[in-house]
């Protein structure tokens, strides 16, 4: 699950999966972060993992690992 999560997030961020780990902060200028990428990650994770993620929880997530908790709840 971790590997798939990192791959999906990296795909939206247009980064190499190897450049990300669960510790990576993803809402940063390094990844040209903007709200659109946030929407894209949220819908991707919901569809791929069958999860239902609230906006507040997603806003609170800072690191890739925080997303793991949201999709495995």
């Amino acid at each position: 699950m971790e590997e798939k999560l990192i791959e999906l997030v990296a795909d939206v961020l247009e980064a190499e999966p190897g450049a990300l780990s669960l510790d990576t902060e993803f809402k940063t200028d390094e990844f040209d972060w903007d709200s659109m990428k946030g929407y894209a990650i949220l819908v991707t994770l919901e569809d791929e993992f069958g999860a239902s993620i609230t906006v507040d929880d997603f806003i609170a997530a800072k690191r890739v690992g925080d997303l793991l908790g949201l999709v495995s709840e």
Partner: peptide, 11 residues
């Protein structure tokens, strides 16, 4: 609702 429109359209 930016997120609502985005998720609606891309789905």
């Amino acid at each position: 609702d930016g997120m609502g429109v985005f998720t609606f359209a891309v789905r």
